[in-house]
Design a binder for these strands. Sequence first.
DNA 1: CGACCTTTTGATTGGCGTCAAAATCTGTGG
DNA 2: CCACAGATTTTGACGCCAATCAAAAGGTCG
Lengths: 256, 256
Amino acid sequence: MGDVLATRPKPHTECASCRIRKLALFKGVALEDLQWTQTYRSNQLFAAAKKNLYEEDRTNPYAYTLFSGWVMLFKSLSSGKRQILRFALPGDFIGFQANLTGPMTHSARTVTECSFCAFPRDNLRAMFFERPDLAVRIAEMNARDMDLCQYHLLGAGRKSARERLAFTLLELFYRSIRIDLAAGASMPESIDFPVAQEELGDSVGLTTVHVNRTLRAMQKDDLITLTRRRLSIHDFDRLCEIGHFDPKIVLGPPPP
Amino acid sequence: MGDVLATRPKPHTECASCRIRKLALFKGVALEDLQWTQTYRSNQLFAAAKKNLYEEDRTNPYAYTLFSGWVMLFKSLSSGKRQILRFALPGDFIGFQANLTGPMTHSARTVTECSFCAFPRDNLRAMFFERPDLAVRIAEMNARDMDLCQYHLLGAGRKSARERLAFTLLELFYRSIRIDLAAGASMPESIDFPVAQEELGDSVGLTTVHVNRTLRAMQKDDLITLTRRRLSIHDFDRLCEIGHFDPKIVLGPPPP
DNA sequence: CGACCTTTTGATTGGCGTCAAAATCTGTGG
DNA sequence: CCACAGATTTTGACGCCAATCAAAAGGTCG
């Protein structure tokens, strides 16, 4: 509810923010142009883990580019059930929606500590008209998010528990290493994985209990290991097949 | 598969296309500007019911504005299972996605006879840069589609069969009367409903058999009637409550 | 160290899927 | 206008995947 966003200037590694800029909204934008957008944005913000950024049905004056940390976006039912729509990772743009001045259509909450930069939402339209390249870029980023949403709809509607989890684990794995891969690093076998099993369940449409049983079974089959906030994938090929996942979904087509 | 799109110049009512223009991509665009876009688009096209417009994983040179008829967009699994992502209704823009030159991320197939206008996809980017207002409009339409997709994800992940069907029936009802309502007509009690129960199932993530049983039960409870391609809604309030549906989702906030 | 999460395990239930077949509708050609 | 094939809807019996209920076992952090 009343979790407010703090503007602490301290706990943040400088280089993360810099690396992100190369992938986020301003990818490929010249430096002087970045100065230009300063007029449209406020300062860098920070939030602790498990803080609400904004809530469904309430207005929120900002949209954000996430610099570091994981955020979950979700919708809730009056019954208390919750569906996570997607996890936002560093570089993602969140809070953009059709009705820029109306109430939010979903809630956002930090999973880990996060840092981001906020854009006043009522400036966005003006900014797009002045900078069509940014508008196109937003449209494309949004289309990518849409694509992911459709994959998850396919999963929730038509896949078994194991298939859904395989897909989601692979998706988060590849998304989380994408930045490093782009920088030429080799593929790691494991990643930091700050998502609790309850949140995994809310993301794929299963109960915590069933998520636990299914993960356990997948571990016994030597597909993955998932312990104390760390995810290892042991058999990419088999897991991709089970989850109907193709790394290209996240990484894009391989360069020629 | 090889269902090709015919360019028949005949069976089409003129006024439908005209009404649609007021809601579609070019809503509020001056007439002379519409001429301008002629250079970017090809002629009006027609297709019979149950024809494929384009297919997942294959490239398709066009994006479309639908003028009349219903189209279903869906993803398939190798197992043959299918998930309908959304139904496109007159005025909707289809075939836009993050990777404009790459293969389609989903398939499209006509439900009824349809007419539409096609845009060469590789011109779209150029068009957006020349006309930022259209880029913004695309971004907004896309964001609205995204919002709907998220509602369906919530449904497939967290709602019961009856709740999902209530939502989808109401959504299609309101979307289908939206154009007439905007023209000042009063709310009808029933609409043409060309969607088979199998397709309803593929849309909400249920089997045909269970869709049938659930619809039947909802009819017994005097909520709806659904026979021979016609949907009547008898108790809007109760159905909205069951489906967690708010007409504002489709109609937007009421004018002040 | 103690309160509170998060994970794990067991027992039981139930909503929806699966399989099968009949009934009804649709449209197409004779 | 009827006959017939194929599509769509309807009904019944049965099974299973995942939900629910309950509680123990770790982990984490003040």
